[in-house]
């Protein structure tokens, strides 16, 4: 039994779970189950949203420790689901470690939905939320264009690893500008509905549910980190839209 390999695979699963937006509790529990399924009697795991520490005691008493930094995080529920079922499978069937490792790599490298489909998703979120918040059909169409714009900007910023606070400000400012200009051209449009609908693409759904679940499962540190992060994102959105609002008001003296 290669314990180094086991620790490597376990940490990799935990890292991907945290990276793609699972709760800390789930990552720790998955790693713990995997280690005990492969016959480790003593394993200590401490995971945070940015870092995972694992120590596994080998039968001869020599511990193996691995510290793993979680760099960029994004939400990918499909991957969490697949990792979860992989972990379940591994705990019951106990396949050879190299198989799990290959499977984990495959999940990590999977690029997910194709670009047009994701762009359609962004446009659809903006479209449907504008209608949901009481906009009319014309508002929804304009919002779906801002959704596409946000998708394009996010893709660009992610590729060059821009600071997320900065990129959120720019994206929300772009949304604000497009919506205020459109509302200025055609008074029949409701700028506020369009903006509230389009901004839903930037509001991380993770903000409300995940930090709370972390806190109530007693992972206070990660919960606070996520809470601060979501407050920062909300502030960035407000700053961007606010800047666009001030700018257009000064321009047209509304």
């Amino acid at each position: 039994m290669d314990y180094n390999q086991l620790v490597f695979v376990g940490t990799e699963i935990g890292r991907l779970l945290v990276k793609y937006g699972a709760e800390i509790y789930r990552a720790e529990e998955s790693m713990h189950r995997l280690f005990s399924a492969y016959g480790v009697s003593e394993s200590h795991i401490f995971a945070m949203t940015t870092c995972i520490n694992v120590t596994v005691c080998q039968p001869d008493g020599v511990p193996i420790t691995r510290i793993c930094r979680v760099e960029d995080r994004c939400i990918d529920l499909g991957k969490i689901d697949r990792l979860n079922s992989l972990c379940r499978h591994a705990c019951t069937q106990r396949p050879p470690l190299c198989d799990i490792r290959r499977e984990v790599r495959k999940i990590d490298l999977d690029s997910g939905n194709s670009k047009p489909l994701r762009a359609l998703g962004f446009a659809g979120v903006a479209f449907a939320f504008t209608l949901f918040y009481g906009g009319n059909a014309a508002d929804a169409v304009i919002s779906s264009f801002t959704g596409l714009l946000v998708y394009w900007m996010q893709d660009f910023f992610l590729r060059y690893r821009a600071n997320s606070f900065f990129s959120t400000i720019l994206e929300s400012a772009a949304i604000g500008l497009v919506c205020f200009v459109a509302a200025h051209m055609d008074p029949g449009l409701n700028a506020d509905r369009m903006i509230i609908g389009s901004v839903m693409n930037l509001v991380p759904g993770i903000a409300i549910t995940s930090f709370m679940r972390d806190i109530l499962l007693a992972d206070y540190l990660s919960g606070m980190l996520r809470f601060v992060e979501s407050l920062l994102v909300a502030m960035a959105i407000a700053l961007g839209v606010g800047a666009a609002m001030v700018f257009t008001r000064l321009l047209w003296g509304v």
Partner: peptide, 19 residues
């Protein structure tokens, strides 16, 4: 509104790869 929220959630699922 329920239908709108359903559509919005489907679109969001496309963004986060839930299939």
């Amino acid at each position: 509104p329920c239908f709108y929220s359903f559509v919005a959630c489907v679109a969001y699922c496309m963004c986060v790869n839930l299939r």
